[in-house]
Design a protein around this nucleic acid. Structure first.
Lengths: 201, 201
DNA sequence: TTAAATATATACCGATCGGTACATATTTGC
DNA sequence: GCAAATATGTACCGATCGGTATATATTTAA
């Protein structure tokens, strides 16, 4: 153990809480005072633990993607013998549970941040991170569709990247709809219509 | 003509410019100084012409919807003898031209504002306006699908409201994708896949 | 016991926020 | 010409912004 006074708050709990505040109010809609108030700590403690606003947001965004996003992506791969449409449905239902959950703000921090990106409202470095995250998501989804096509379960004329972009569009749209009060049932109906468009064989 | 010094700027041009600044930076990402600088006028002039920030935003949002959104909705109805899928395609391509245009900021002011809504980042009255706008859009689209179903050109089991919600989800998703640099061609491909899901007869 | 190291609390920094008071410049009707 | 009405430019308001200096409290290693 190193010398010095011990932190009186749990750093990972604080990060999760900070993420929720950004999730609720967005980058430019959140002030450092909002954060210290929600976390119940002082500004010097916040800055010492997480750096400045931009660095804290970046950390919170990564926490969001790895803790709330990445686990759901696993559903695209398993069970490996299940048809693609079934795995995609499971994936999209998982996303619905994240963006429409009583325990956390409605909507998606990632999509919300994308809408703020590319302007003076958000630092350029964060816009670049978001861009990289979207590319990673799209590539992952494309690969899943691709391997399904190689298995012969998907129309040969369909382009995996187009299908991935289409599915992500629907998902991004869901996160907007949920902010306007759409229920889980309605969101699931949208997903089912969307999946119906897939050229499965 | 009433007494008093004349305005040195064009009010409708100023409103359009203000709308563009909000379109670019969002409500909480835009300051009144950003606006006076972009419009080339002083703060008292801005406040005298448009009221406070919230009132100006509301006016700008209405201008956006009536000037950039409403005309495209007309494509859903004409030509009346064209198949539904064709009219919907024309409508969605029209939206693409708005959200992906060199003359104006990428993305959609309406969707961007929806993402800001329901938090301290944006006044409650604006959130309510956005809610009403979305409902109006959905109802309009639902009616078009409904009348097509009555004409017997759509599966009887499909629920028009579900289809409308699905199509709007795709559109909302497009506005997120375009902010990440997707080209017009890619967006059109997404639209074509989306329309393929419609249960037309 | 003491020095180094770390966290906390208070109090503050200059900059910017949304918004306005006030004096001045125009314009119209009389 | 003059009073009423409206717009402009400057200069400012208190509040809040992101961020930090400084003093104090707590911990470990020696």
């Amino acid at each position: 153990m190193s010398a010095g006074r011990r932190r009186t708050f749990d750093k990972s709990e604080a990060l999760d809480m900070a993420m929720r505040v950004f999730w609720e109010n967005g980058y430019s809609g959140t002030s450092m005072s909002d954060l210290t108030e929600a976390l119940g700590i002082n500004k010097p403690s916040l800055y010492a633990a997480f750096g400045n606003k931009e660095q804290l947001f970046e950390t919170a965004l990564n926490h969001y993607m790895s803790h709330y996003g990445a686990p759901i992506f696993e559903r695209l791969k398993e069970p490996a013998d299940a048809p693609l449409s079934e795995r995609i449905r499971s994936y999209m239902l998982g996303i619905i549970d994240v963006i429409n959950n009583r325990q956390s703000p409605k909507g998606c921090l990632f999509v919300k941040s994308c809408c703020e990106a590319g302007s003076t409202a958000i630092p350029d470095d964060i816009s670049l991170s978001l861009q990289a995250m979207r590319q990673a998501n799209e590539r992952l989804l494309t690969k899943v569709v691709e391997s399904e096509q190689k298995r012969g379960c998907l129309s040969e004329t369909a382009k995996p990247k187009d299908i991935a972009e289409y599915l992500l569009s629907v998902l991004y749209g869901l996160t907007v709809q949920v902010k306007q009060g759409k229920s889980r049932k309605e969101l699931v109906r949208i997903v089912d219509i969307a999946i119906n468009a897939l050229p499965v064989k």
